[in-house]
């Protein structure tokens, strides 16, 4: 039973990591590409880290919670770096897709 939960978490995490990178690869402009990595990867890596914490807590004699630290750190830093990258992209007037609504000059 425990192995099933662990495997499910690992597969979900890896899947969302992959979706984030697919978004980075296939979406047409920078501002749209920004969405893939900032969201999909936080949940993907978050699920993997939870799986790691569970695995080490149940398979060694002590509880292992330090993976939570990386999760919290990523959840705090991912939006900050996304915000700064978007700001830089607006600053250097990067092209946006034609169909963007209220596009910024």
């Amino acid at each position: 039973m425990f192995e099933w939960i662990l495997s499910a978490l690992i597969l979900i995490g890896a899947f969302f990591t992959l979706v984030g990178s697919i978004g980075l690869y296939k979406l047409p402009d920078f501002f749209m590409r920004l969405h893939g990595p900032t969201k999909a990867t936080t949940l993907g890596v978050g699920a993997l880290l939870i799986a790691s914490a569970l695995y080490f807590s149940f398979n060694t004699d002590q509880i292992s919670l330090h993976e939570v630290l990386i999760t919290i750190f990523l959840f705090i830093t991912a939006p900050v770096s996304a915000h700064l990258m978007a700001k830089a992209a607006i600053h250097i007037k990067l092209k946006q897709v034609k169909r963007t609504q209220n596009s910024i000059e």
């Binding site: 999909a40 609504q101 209220n102 596009s103």
Partner: peptide, 25 residues
Amino acid sequence: DILVANMAVAKLILGRNKDLRPGFF
């Protein structure tokens, strides 16, 4: 919301690019 949003965004990313309507507000 992060959990729900991720499902939605995954669906949007794996769908066709032409259907997406991005925008600023």
